[in-house]
Design a protein around this nucleic acid. Structure first.
Length: 430
DNA sequence: TCTGGGGTCCTAGGACCC
DNA sequence: TCTGGGGTCCTAGGACCC
């Protein structure tokens, strides 16, 4: 492309931008999603502390215990015992708000949670059911506002900018409409933040949980965002937060007060510059309507730690089953993979990975099992194992998968025409 | 009695090619 | 005979997110 053409494109983009409405990006987060779906099924549990976690079924006993303790009739036989009777591995995936009062929540070990809230009712996870509701609420959103980015089972970004009515009251009117439509058609509540970009919208959706709406404008940065902990920035995790704390930085405002060069000095070129932008509320990332998967994996934590030699048969069977599931995933989704790898976790929780890239891609369970087996041989196997996983990458789409590549609702296959933002944005933050 | 399962992106060194 | 520099791919690990 010649220079005049680039220049013309730039000028055009700038002119278009001057006339464009301000960017309004929404982040929508379903409230206690898994737990709320379970409460739809078992309304008897409403108001009681319930946790959903990775655990195994003990059906008859569960029913009896729940009835004895609570006098609750009709709790289905899939309900687990009360948390205090639970023994075994696993963590909480979601907890109802009634359970959160006791300080239990996502990622907390079940045994630890049992001490905090022994009377909580424990339910097994049912991903098929959650996926069903996930598709449903996303389809409802897309009918109203088609520019939606899928961020997992219970979260999306929505570009309100060019949706009719999307600018009214800074996005509040449209947010309310979506919230109501989802509630009326699913019985589920969600929280929505609307802001000039994804970064701020994501933080804003947390402000009024549950069932809340928060509208943030550029001018609110200092009053609403700067007092928050750095950890509230999506992308600053425990490690970065700890390092910031060591440097005497606790709030986003304190982060914003540091020079860009100083941040780069301490966190590297990319991360330092990004932190500086984020602290000033700047984020030009577009809402991405569809994307291809990069990798697919299956893993499992054993009920008890297994030894490669002493538990060889058991381990082998699990390994083969993982490869078969993975091959099934590939075939169902319509991909073949060139890279195959394994992941394992020892009893001391340290983990290792090994992978191998082939000349030709495959989706065959036996081929995957063979390569994964070679990877496993390259790893020390003296310690007992806690977890084993199989992963494929370097994916290529086959002609047509039986399940479409993306999980987008049918109504929205209509592709995104390039937006002003994608024209004007020369570099992305992430 | 620790700590699930499924992902993405980044970094960094080495191989290999031009 | 000494030693360049860029680009891409592969592998391992780690941070982070839902």
């Amino acid at each position: 492309m010649s220079n005049p053409e680039i220049l013309r494109g730039l000028v055009l983009a700038i002119l278009l931008r001057m006339n464009a409405p301000p960017r309004r990006i929404a982040h929508l987060d379903m409230d206690a999603f898994y737990a709320s779906v379970e409460l739809l099924r078992y309304p008897q549990l409403r108001g009681l502390p319930v946790v959903i976690g990775g655990a195994r079924r003990r059906e008859d006993e569960a029913l009896r215990l729940v009835q004895d303790e609570r006098g609750l009739a009709g709790i289905p036989a899939c309900a687990f015992p009360l948390l205090r009777d639970y023994t075994g591995r696993g963590v909480i995936t979601t907890a109802t708000y009634a359970a959160r009062q006791f300080g239990v929540g996502s990622a907390l070990g079940l045994m630890k949670a049992a001490r905090l809230c022994p009377q909580a009712i424990l339910l097994p996870v049912d991903f098929d059911e959650y996926r069903k509701y996930s598709r449903l609420f996303k389809a409802i959103i897309v009918e109203i506002a088609p520019q939606m980015e899928d961020r997992g089972v219970d979260e999306v970004y929505i570009d309100f900018t060019d949706v009719p009515g999307g600018q009214r009251e800074g996005g509040r009117v449209l947010a309310r409409l979506i919230q109501r439509a989802i509630f009326e058609r699913t019985g589920l509540t969600c929280s929505i933040g609307v802001a000039p970009n994804k970064l701020i919208a994501k933080m804003a959706s947390e402000f009024n949980k549950p069932n809340g709406i928060s509208i943030i404008h550029e001018a609110d940065l200092q009053t609403r965002i700067w007092p928050l902990a750095c950890r509230k920035i999506n992308g600053i995790g425990p490690k970065a937060d700890e390092k910031l704390a060591r440097l005497g930085i606790h709030t986003i405002g304190e982060l914003a007060a540091r020079e860009r060069a100083w941040l780069i000095e301490h966190f590297g070129k990319a991360t330092g510059a990004w932190m500086h932008e984020a602290a000033h509320g700047r984020d030009e990332r577009p809402v991405v309507l569809a994307s291809e998967p990069v990798s697919i994996s299956r893993e499992t934590t054993f009920e008890r730690d297994l030894h490669a030699v002493r538990d060889r048969a058991e381990l082998g069977a699990i390994f083969t089953a993982l490869c078969e599931k993975l091959a099934g995933d590939l075939q169902r989704k319509g991909y073949v993979a060139k890279t195959i790898g394994i992941k394992l976790r020892y009893d001391d929780f340290r983990g290792v990975t090994r992978d191998h890239t082939m000349d030709r891609p495959t989706d065959d369970a036996k081929a995957i099992r063979h390569i994964a087996g070679l990877c496993l041989k390259r790893v020390p196997l003296e310690r007992r194992l806690r977890l084993l996983g199989v992963r494929v990458g370097s994916l290529q789409s086959t002609a047509q998968g039986r399940e479409s590549a993306s999980n987008r609702p049918q109504a929205l296959t209509k592709s995104a025409s390039p937006t002003i933002d994608s024209i004007a944005t020369t570099k992305q933050l992430f």
